[in-house]
Design a binder for these strands. Structure first.
Lengths: 159, 159
DNA sequence: CACATCTGATTGACGTGTCAATCATGTACC
DNA sequence: GGTACATGATTGACACGTCAATCAGATGTG
């Protein structure tokens, strides 16, 4: 009787592997959900709002071209466009025409937006510490870094 | 000069910790996004569709009460209701009135839905293996399990 | 039985995300 | 200068998710 087991890598995951996969993905989602709801309760900001405000806070003159902002937060143009429109309605940001390229727009942090970001950021960072950093040992934090590196490498590999 | 450093656990994360946090959450999202888009390309199913079809496939008689289905996939009632309505329009499931409780509804897998799930599941599981399981060593897989355990414990702790 | 209340499920409003189409301005080349 | 194309950004249509309100049928109590 020959050993004819097909290569494991072409097979479906085992039950154990699938359980670990589901645990991983569900934990990440649960963590995200918890942080999002805290953020929303404490600051009436969505994670998207927070990302945009963070990027603008760090920008020169608290303003960025739309495309730069899209790169900074890692979003598609149209997603940013929709989000920006909603945020403008809440006076968190403002849109100015760009003086050097009349196709372009500049997104500017309003005072109200800056204030909202400041009051959101401390409790948000504290929540990240409580729910993530403090839940893990320093060794585990290192492991997380190695794991994400390995997973990202696979995600970006040509296959 | 006394050592007056406040307890680390009340502070914001360090830059390193924040980097690891962002890597973790972004990797999980990127993995999810990649699997979702593969699923959609290959089977025209969303992750939500897949979850519902999986639960129904495993159910007795390929049917579940709405509330049982909601528990099985871990969703709120209204989310399920909206999703079910959309899936019914695509003939993936059907809604029957429940004979024993006229308030209730039963969600039934259609033949078309069962077929869609079968053809989606093998490539989907293979993608999980390629992008997650095979990207990690067996030791790393164990680490993932420990990490999710620790994070879930914190998420469910009374604090 | 009558009434209040609980429960299973749906609905509507609205914020969010993706994709394809569109619009307007900038740029290159003849 | 005029045509073609590239680029910055917005829009519309639609899927998805949450919350609060609603509705209808079940259940308990006098």
């Amino acid at each position: 009787m020959t050993n004819s087991t097909p290569p494991r890598s072409r097979q479906s995951p085992t039950a154990d592997e699938l359980r670990i996969w589901r645990g991983f993905i569900e934990t990440a989602q649960a963590l995200n959900a918890r942080l999002s709801s805290r953020l929303h309760e404490e600051s009436a900001l969505s994670p998207g709002d927070y990302a945009v405000l963070l990027a603008l806070s760090e920008a020169d003159g608290r303003r960025l071209r739309s495309s730069e902002l899209a790169d900074a937060v890692g979003w598609e143009r149209s997603r940013l466009s929709h989000h920006i429109r909603r945020m403008e309605g809440r006076d968190l940001i403002r849109r100015d025409d760009c003086a050097v390229d009349y196709r372009g727009a500049e997104v500017v942090l309003t005072d109200h937006g800056a204030q909202a970001f400041r009051s959101a950021s401390v409790p948000h960072l504290r929540a990240v510490r409580e729910l993530f950093v403090d839940a893990l040992t320093p060794e585990q934090l290192d492991q997380v870094e190695q794991l994400t590196r390995a997973l990202q490498a696979r995600l970006h590999s040509p296959t």
